[in-house]
């Protein structure tokens, strides 16, 4: 076989229906949604700043350090009314250990204002035929894409992120709720052993991430050891360059040399100016998580070749 033998396959793509007009409309909807998310993020930031300023003024005026008053309670549906699907962007105070518990599906955590500490944020809600774990497991494949787009991660704007899916609370299920939430999570370690409690919306945040969402390590995770992300606003040894890496279609976990080749091919061409001249490596998904036919995934990191600390970001 040579390449010429394959050319006739291109004909398959000519059978696709031309839906250019609908596509143009769809793309503009996506652009508008993206803008709204960006605006929401900016507004949330402004709101946080204003609240902090107002509290500062209030404290300075009264000279007291009393408790911060509780925010207005989250509206809840009236008794006996059908449960209402949570809206995109809803923030949740799911206990961190439940976020990463693979057996925690039915979630009765509190909705909170995104200005308050929260561990997950809903990027999409998928309707289920039955509100069961089995049905949810069958339907959540698209969650990853929804969350990915929601946070804005792409081939040139990577930050540590992950996703999790939850069914409604048992009470809501009993009242007829039948959906699964696709929630955004910011992991505390490379292998997602914990979830950060953050404030502010995560919508579109990968486009211009604050320092506390960037990926930094003091020790690079290997295929044997998970590592926690460390604050990038302190000196750190490894700093993400903002580019993900991957190798797919694998029958076995790649050799060190294959990983190095992929790192060179995928990380080096995308190193931002601020990291030029530095050593570049990649953290990869661990061997323990590899399944034949699957992928290994990673992210590019810059470091000083003598492992001396990089300055606070």
């Amino acid at each position: 076989m040579n390449g010429e033998d394959l050319k006739f396959l291109a004909e398959r793509s000519w059978t696709l229906e031309d839906r250019t007009p609908e596509r143009l409309v769809d793309v503009h909807h996506r652009i508008a949604a993206h803008r709204r998310r960006r605006a929401a993020t900016a507004l949330a930031t402004v709101a946080v700043v204003l609240v902090v300023l107002a509290l500062g003024i209030a404290l300075a005026t009264t000279g007291t350090t009393g408790d911060i008053p509780d925010p207005a309670p989250t509206p809840t549906p009236a008794p006996n009314s059908a449960p209402i699907k949570p809206a995109e962007g809803t923030c949740w105070a799911v206990p961190a250990k439940l976020v990463v518990d693979p057996d925690h599906w039915v979630d009765d955590s509190d909705q909170v204002s995104c200005d308050q500490k929260h561990t997950t944020q809903t990027a999409a809600v998928l309707v289920l035929d039955e509100p069961t774990i089995e049905d949810a497991q069958r339907r959540i494949d698209p969650c990853e894409g929804y969350v990915l787009r929601y946070v804005g991660v792409s081939q040139d704007s990577w930050i540590p992120w992950s996703w999790v899916a939850f069914l409604p609370s048992q009470e809501e299920i009993d009242d007829g709720a039948s959906w699964v939430r696709c929630d955004l999570v910011f992991p505390t370690t490379w292998e997602y052993a914990g979830a950060h409690a953050t404030t502010g919306s995560g919508a579109g945040i990968a486009d211009n991430p604050p320092t506390d969402r960037w990926g930094c390590f003091n020790t690079l995770p290997t295929d044997k050891t998970d590592q926690p992300y460390v604050p990038c606003d302190n000196p750190h040894v490894y700093e993400a360059t903002g580019t993900p890496t991957f190798i797919d279609g694998l029958t076995a976990y790649p050799s060190v040399s294959d990983l190095e080749t992929a790192t060179d091919e995928q990380c080096l061409p995308t190193v931002p100016d601020k990291f030029q001249g530095m050593a570049i490596t990649a953290a990869w998904s661990p061997r323990s998580t590899f399944t034949p036919g699957g992928s290994v995934l990673g992210a590019c990191f810059a470091y000083n070749s003598d492992r001396s600390p990089l300055p606070a970001r």
């Binding site: 990853e144 990915l148 081939q155 990577w158 292998e191 399944t291 699957g294 992928s295």
Partner: peptide
């Protein structure tokens, strides 16, 4: 962009696999 994102490359396979 299409070529570099054509696979579901950030599939966290180790989560709830």
């Amino acid at each position: 962009i299409m070529v570099t994102t054509s696979a579901s490359w950030w599939r966290r396979r180790w989560i709830r696999e």
